[in-house]
Write a protein that binds this DNA or RNA. Structure first.
Lengths: 221, 221
DNA sequence: CGGGCCCTTGATATGAGTCAAGGGTGGTGG
DNA sequence: CCACCACCCTTGACTCATATCAAGGGCCCG
């Protein structure tokens, strides 16, 4: 991964995206371009026929984009900036050349694609088996990242997408997402800010993610 | 793809699996082995804690297995033969060497992984947005493959997995799957055999897959 | 021929969706 | 700088699809 980062340091040009701009649109020429997100958040979605959009994924800094379109001519989805973003553009052709020269870069790239497959399989598994509350809590824990060193000090995690986007991504409705978040807040597990949240009891959330039921509105912890 | 097939022709050893055998188990050493299914059907699943198993995927002849574990030490899932199978074993290391020598083989491999990512994204999108009937019909259409040349001649498609497996894969219950299949049969869209089915009205199924509602038990076509 | 397992089917329960109204927040224009 | 407006978020009541529970039947295997 380090090598890959270095790779795109040298090979890629950089673009700035303002909130609301598109990195690419579904159906556009892919041109063998991959993207590496340096900062900011994007959503990947397919504009569905009836105006509704199907959210495929949200990116975080350090993610790659466009890896589902290697060897394909046209983009399968659109990428929309939820915040201002810095994105590196990397030609797949350049990576391929690098892979010819550097012996291990090919392994790194394959491993990256492989991890992406695994990530998608995990997401699908969650959609198959988990209920609304479980999905939402898992989503929050993913966004919050790994537990901080000092257990008392929980960090503020950004949540730059709309409830509609979240619900679409999780296969739910905005109403259900809102209700569940409110419940979590009422119980004191999390607190909600404008465009972010804070985990206040990671153990409780992990219990919920593991399948524990969520009481509707009791005060107890 | 042709090149990849050729590749594993020369590089891989072949194994025979009898129905019920495992190709590999979750947690086993991956050893950088990939698999190419020549014939037969397998299911990929994760043995969940409570004995229930989470179906990740079903393979068909021509599919690759283990591509989610490149660069990982241990398997993330188990592969179980639903029928007798012929599987080619390919060392990732050998593929990597091939990629160093043959200029385009690297592109083919990347494209294969990329398609796999896309496949998983599509599966997740279906789980997010489609109801029970839609999921089942899409599943059947996938299994049936592309429409045959002679529209009248619909072929018999195998369905070697149990209802439990299907329902788990689609995020439903065996009861719902059974009910829906019965409805489809009653309406004359499909016919069901022991371990397979026949599409009798592909247009009707495609309407359903596109979102048309399924009447409960009318006789009309 | 007998037994177990899976599939089918019915009745009922429940989680999530739908519809709808009210409130907060951010953005825009005066 | 303030006020208005639009959009999104929240919350409630109700509906509906799908899960659950349970019983009966058929197929395959021993």
């Amino acid at each position: 991964m380090t090598a890959l980062e270095l790779a795109q340091c040298q090979l890629g040009s950089q673009i700035q995206l303002a909130r609301g701009e598109h990195l690419f649109q579904m159906g556009a020429e892919a041109d063998g371009e991959l993207y590496f997100v340096r900062s900011g958040h994007l959503k990947i979605y397919q504009p569905c026929d009836d105006g509704v959009q199907r959210i495929i994924d949200f990116t975080r800094p350090g993610d790659w984009l466009g890896v589902d379109t290697i060897g394909e001519q046209y983009r399968h989805a659109s990428a929309h900036a939820l915040t201002d973003c810095q994105v590196d553009v990397v030609q797949y052709r350049h990576l391929a050349e690098l892979m010819d020269e550097e012996p291990y870069s090919c392994d790194l790239f394959s491993a990256m694609l492989s991890r992406e497959i695994d990530r998608q399989q995990l997401a699908a598994a969650i959609l198959r088996s988990a209920g609304a509350c479980q999905r939402i809590v898992m989503f929050l824990l993913q966004r919050a990242g790994p537990a901080p060193q000092a257990p008392m000090l929980e960090t503020h995690a950004p949540l730059p997408m709309s409830r509609q986007d979240i619900s679409d991504y999780l296969g739910l409705t905005p109403a259900t997402v809102s209700r569940t978040l409110s419940s979590l807040k009422r119980n004191g597990w999390i607190s909600l800010g404008q465009r972010g949240f804070v985990v206040q009891s990671r153990p409780a959330l992990e219990r919920l993610a593991a399948g524990a039921p969520l009481a509707i509105a009791p005060q107890a912890a």
